[in-house]
Amino acid sequence: GATAVSEWTEYKTADGKTYYYNNRTEESTWEKPQELK
């Protein structure tokens, strides 16, 4: 299949934890999204 550009962006909180934000759905998660595995 075609490689889609991930909708997920990786961010870090002030205390250094990583989370992921989906630009399309406006969803955020602590877990690494399936698309990034």
Rank of each mutant, 00 (worst) to 15 (best):
G1N: 13
G1Q: 14
G1Y: 10
G1H: 14
G1F: 13
G1I: 13
G1E: 14
G1M: 13
G1K: 03
G1A: 14
A2G: 14
A2S: 14
A2R: 01
A2T: 12
A2E: 14
A2Y: 11
A2K: 04
A2P: 14
A2H: 14
A2L: 14
T3K: 02
T3S: 13
T3D: 13
T3P: 14
T3W: 10
T3N: 14
T3V: 13
T3Y: 05
T3R: 00
T3G: 13
A4S: 14
A4N: 13
A4G: 10
A4R: 00
A4L: 12
A4W: 13
A4D: 13
A4P: 14
A4K: 05
A4M: 14
A4Q: 14
A4H: 14
V5D: 12
V5M: 12
V5R: 03
V5I: 13
V5Y: 12
V5K: 09
V5P: 12
V5T: 13
V5E: 13
S6H: 11
S6N: 13
S6E: 11
S6I: 09
S6V: 09
S6K: 09
S6Y: 09
S6L: 11
S6W: 10
E7L: 06
E7P: 07
E7N: 07
E7R: 01
E7S: 06
E7Y: 07
E7W: 06
E7Q: 08
E7C: 04
E7F: 09
E7K: 04
E7M: 06
W8P: 01
W8E: 01
W8A: 01
W8Y: 02
W8S: 01
W8I: 02
W8M: 00
W8T: 00
T9K: 11
T9Y: 09
T9L: 09
T9Q: 12
T9E: 11
T9M: 11
T9P: 00
T9H: 10
T9S: 12
E10K: 03
E10M: 08
E10R: 01
E10V: 10
E10P: 06
E10G: 01
E10Y: 03
E10N: 03
E10T: 08
E10Q: 07
E10F: 03
Y11W: 07
Y11K: 14
Y11D: 01
Y11V: 14
Y11P: 00
Y11F: 12
Y11T: 05
Y11G: 05
Y11H: 12
Y11I: 14
Y11L: 15
K12E: 07
K12Y: 10
K12H: 12
K12R: 11
K12F: 09
K12Q: 12
K12M: 12
T13F: 04
T13Q: 04
T13A: 07
T13S: 08
T13K: 03
T13N: 09
T13G: 11
A14Q: 11
A14S: 11
A14R: 05
A14T: 11
A14P: 13
A14F: 03
A14Y: 02
A14N: 09
A14E: 11
D15S: 09
D15C: 10
D15V: 01
D15F: 04
D15L: 04
D15K: 02
D15H: 04
D15Y: 06
D15W: 06
G16S: 01
G16N: 05
G16D: 04
G16P: 00
G16E: 03
G16V: 00
G16F: 01
G16Q: 03
G16I: 00
K17C: 09
K17D: 09
K17A: 06
K17N: 08
K17I: 10
K17P: 01
K17W: 04
K17Y: 08
K17H: 09
T18R: 03
T18P: 06
T18A: 07
T18Q: 04
T18W: 04
T18L: 10
T18N: 06
T18K: 06
T18M: 06
T18V: 12
T18G: 02
T18Y: 10
Y19A: 05
Y19W: 15
Y19G: 05
Y19R: 04
Y19Q: 04
Y19S: 02
Y19M: 07
Y19V: 08
Y20G: 00
Y20K: 00
Y20R: 00
Y20T: 00
Y20M: 00
Y20V: 00
Y20E: 02
Y20I: 01
Y20A: 00
Y20H: 02
Y20F: 08
Y21E: 05
Y21T: 05
Y21W: 08
Y21P: 03
Y21I: 07
N22H: 03
N22T: 00
N22E: 02
N22L: 01
N22F: 01
N22R: 00
N22K: 00
N22Q: 01
N22G: 00
N22A: 00
N22P: 01
N22S: 03
N23H: 15
N23Q: 11
N23T: 13
N23F: 09
N23W: 14
N23I: 12
N23E: 14
N23S: 14
N23D: 10
N23G: 08
R24H: 11
R24Q: 11
R24E: 10
R24I: 15
R24T: 13
T25E: 03
T25N: 03
T25W: 02
T25I: 02
T25G: 02
T25Q: 02
T25R: 02
E26C: 12
E27H: 04
E27W: 02
E27R: 04
E27M: 07
E27N: 04
E27F: 04
E27V: 08
E27T: 07
S28P: 03
S28Q: 12
S28R: 14
S28I: 15
S28K: 15
S28M: 15
S28E: 10
S28H: 13
S28A: 11
S28G: 12
S28W: 15
T29G: 03
T29S: 10
T29M: 08
T29H: 06
T29V: 13
T29Q: 10
T29F: 07
T29N: 04
T29D: 04
W30L: 08
W30A: 08
W30M: 09
W30R: 04
W30H: 09
W30V: 08
W30K: 05
E31S: 06
E31N: 07
E31Q: 08
E31F: 08
E31T: 10
E31W: 06
E31R: 04
E31V: 10
E31A: 05
E31M: 07
K32D: 05
K32P: 06
K32T: 09
K32R: 10
K32L: 10
K32Y: 06
K32F: 05
K32W: 04
K32A: 06
P33M: 01
P33L: 01
P33H: 02
P33F: 03
P33I: 01
P33V: 02
Q34Y: 11
Q34L: 13
Q34K: 08
Q34D: 15
Q34T: 13
Q34A: 15
Q34N: 14
Q34V: 12
Q34E: 15
E35Q: 07
E35L: 04
E35W: 06
E35R: 01
E35N: 09
E35S: 11
E35A: 11
L36F: 12
L36K: 03
L36Q: 05
L36M: 09
L36W: 10
L36G: 06
L36R: 01
L36H: 09
L36E: 08
L36Y: 13
K37D: 15
K37N: 15
K37W: 15
K37H: 15
K37G: 15
K37A: 14
K37P: 10
K37I: 15
K37C: 06
K37S: 15
